[in-house]
């Protein structure tokens, strides 16, 4: 009961704070609309907003799926072969040294205004936390588990797939949670760099036209989307990792 009540109270508190600031701080409406105005914009343009939300959601989910697969594959490759690890690790660091924000216009230039450039942006943001966490988990297998498998005559591949991979799943889950939380950043960045739909696109246009209430409505939807996505991933992981001692 308390666990579900707490976020509701926090949310209500933030709403009240927002209302007070918008109402009494003397900020003009076009700079900070109150919750009521934003709610009105939400309902008045619900169809339009929903359509754009679906576009953004598609980008995020596709990015999350492919980013996770790519990130997990990289981690497995690095653990399976030292040679591969020597090649991949510097590339991995390089990929994080180049700011994704700077890449966004390039990706739009190369891949166009459509879905692909946004999904790729999301993948770029997502894969790293997955790779880093999973790789770390794969390298930190309890030595006793490996010894036991060794005395039982396990092959290297079966140790990797049946022991190390399983043992690294909680770490992988931690990476995936972070990925789910940052995934929208990639998609929105991609939309800002150039798009024809999506919540980021809506925000940019609304901002240019001083439709601050619409911009806030898109922002609210984006936040809700991010939270729902995180909760969905969290529930899924808790189910998958029900065996984990402190899950």
């Amino acid at each position: 009961m308390r666990a579900t009540l707490r976020p509701v109270i926090t949310l209500l508190g933030l709403l009240v704070l927002w209302w007070i600031v918008a109402r009494f701080a003397g900020i003009p409406n076009f700079m900070l609309p109150g919750p009521a105005e934003v709610a009105r914009a939400l309902t008045a343009q619900s169809g339009f907003l929903f359509q754009n939300m679906l576009a953004t959601l598609t980008e995020i989910v596709l990015g999350l799926i492919f980013g996770t697969l790519f990130g997990a594959a990289l981690a497995l490759a690095m653990v399976f072969s030292r040679g591969l690890q020597r090649w991949i690790l510097p590339l991995l660091l390089l990929s994080q040294a180049v700011p994704v924000f700077a890449l966004a216009p390039l990706l739009v230039l190369w891949l166009g205004f459509g879905l692909a450039s946004k999904v790729l942006m999301a993948i770029l943001v997502i894969f790293f936390p997955v790779t880093a966490a999973f790789y770390d988990g794969l390298r930190r297998t309890e030595p006793g588990w490996l010894d036991l498998a060794h005395t039982m005559g396990a092959t290297r591949l079966s140790v990797l797939l049946r022991v190390r991979l399983m043992a690294a799943l909680p770490a992988f889950g931690a990476g995936l949670r972070i990925a789910a939380a940052v995934a929208p950043i990639g998609a929105i960045l991609g939309e800002w760099a150039g798009a024809s739909q999506g919540l980021g696109y809506v925000m940019l246009n609304a901002n240019a036209r001083m439709q601050t209430d619409l911009m806030f409505a898109a922002l609210v939807l984006l936040a809700a989307l991010t939270i729902l996505l995180w909760v969905a991933v969290d529930v899924l992981l808790k189910r998958l990792l029900h065996w984990a001692p402190d899950g």
Binding site: E142, G144, D147, T151, M166, L169, A244, P245
Partner: peptide, 15 residues
């Protein structure tokens, strides 16, 4: 292949 090993911990795989 002829030796079984029992360690200090039970080493059960938790999954």
């Amino acid at each position: 292949g002829r030796v079984a090993w029992m360690g200090q911990q039970d080493l059960l795989y938790p999954w």
